[in-house]
Design a protein around this nucleic acid. Sequence first.
DNA 1: GGTAGTAGTCACTCAGAAGTAACCTGAAAG
DNA 2: CTTTCAGGTTACTTCTGAGTGACTACTACC
Lengths: 135, 135
Amino acid sequence: MADHPHASDPQEALVDEAVFHERYPSRRLLDLIANRWTPIVLFCLASGTHHYGQMQRRIPGISKKMLSQTLRRLETDGLVHREVYRVVPPKTEYELTELGWRLHEPVRFLCRWAAENAEVFDRIERNRTAAAVSE
Amino acid sequence: MADHPHASDPQEALVDEAVFHERYPSRRLLDLIANRWTPIVLFCLASGTHHYGQMQRRIPGISKKMLSQTLRRLETDGLVHREVYRVVPPKTEYELTELGWRLHEPVRFLCRWAAENAEVFDRIERNRTAAAVSE
DNA sequence: GGTAGTAGTCACTCAGAAGTAACCTGAAAG
DNA sequence: CTTTCAGGTTACTTCTGAGTGACTACTACC
């Protein structure tokens, strides 16, 4: 990226290039939800308070490490509340905070849109395999 | 939240853990748009056909490598059409296909939601820095 | 004494995403 | 002869997300 970033351009105003800058909301949203486990954990907790083990059983393929890691991040971000009961055997409850519920909104939208437009992905996949074959 | 096709048991169906499986639309959507440059390239092309250099000037911080790489992927996926004019100096035009426009929809939604809910991210950031300080 | 049950952590590894810098093409202009 | 322009490619490095498996703590029960 050695080049000069601001040559004037006739169409300049049509795209606000800031919309995907680091600190811009859209990028911050993607940085939050665009990883392997966050959306599904959010989704899981949106169906109610869960214990650690409950979640691990419900989310197929997640390891203990990734589950804790994801939950810890959500906790420090204030999206999930963690309540530890010092009993034996230990018990910990996780639930969405109000902030967590806010973030659940766009995740739910993405899910719905994706489900309703599933054929888009099939077409993309066909294009991709077609390109792979013909090369 | 009963937005899943196979919703059956009222309790268990609140989360269908399949919604984020590899081959499920929601995950496929995230796999497509959840990276550094795809959304902004999509956004850029949504404002009209562009030349390569035009895009590089308009998207601050993108390197030639990442721009080509992103465009190539979008092309093989059938989201972007690439038209090469064999002149000197070379000229190449990129534009969204119909499929590309389809995918632009959810991206635009994310942008809008994020912009309208910017304070969510500020709260998250405050939580995060507060947690970092107190440890 | 050994095992089960819950909720974790730690050390290690690996793959892929992203960034940097150098180089290529081909004709025309200085 | 060298530079300029547009539009790239290639090799190399770095950084981070994610996965695996072993290990911990605490107490009750057999």
